[in-house]
């Protein structure tokens, strides 16, 4: 088993339509993760599982701000494995990041 999502040269993540993805967030310090939204309809908390839809959709991670600024890592997890997807800097006023995910 391997990761479903891969990042293209244009920065968009792609994966097979109908495949199930589990996302996790890793941070060096405390940060209360609130919710993850996919395609404007599905939402939940990490670890967040969703099924890839056809076309390009956005996945938004919203969190309560971190102490100071923290570099966060979004990962796809499967079994005991993981694939790092995106790094971003998280503060109390920049408390979200977006992944473009295209189902192919």
């Amino acid at each position: 088993m391997a990761c479903v999502l891969s990042r293209r040269d244009d920065g968009v993540f792609e994966g097979g339509i109908g495949r199930t993805v589990t996302l996790e967030l890793r941070s060096p310090g405390a940060a209360g993760l609130v919710q993850i939204f996919y395609a404007g309809e599905e939402d939940g908390v990490a670890p967040f599982e969703f099924v890839i839809r056809k076309g390009k959709n956005k996945l938004l991670l919203v969190a309560v701000g971190a102490v100071d600024r923290q570099r966060m890592l979004v990962l796809e997890t499967f079994g005991a494995g993981e694939c790092p997807l995106k790094l971003f800097t998280w503060t109390r006023t920049h408390f979200f990041t977006t992944l473009d995910i295209e189902g192919v």
Binding site: S6, R7, R8, D9, D10, G11, K58, L60, L73, V74, P84, L85, K86, L87, F88, F96, T97, T98, D100
Partner: peptide
């Protein structure tokens, strides 16, 4: 596609978020 790579960094600086 490594999130630590220079290319990913440019993608992150220009994405919608």
């Amino acid at each position: 596609s490594d999130p630590n790579s220079a290319h990913s960094a440019l993608m992150d600086a220009t994405d919608s978020s």
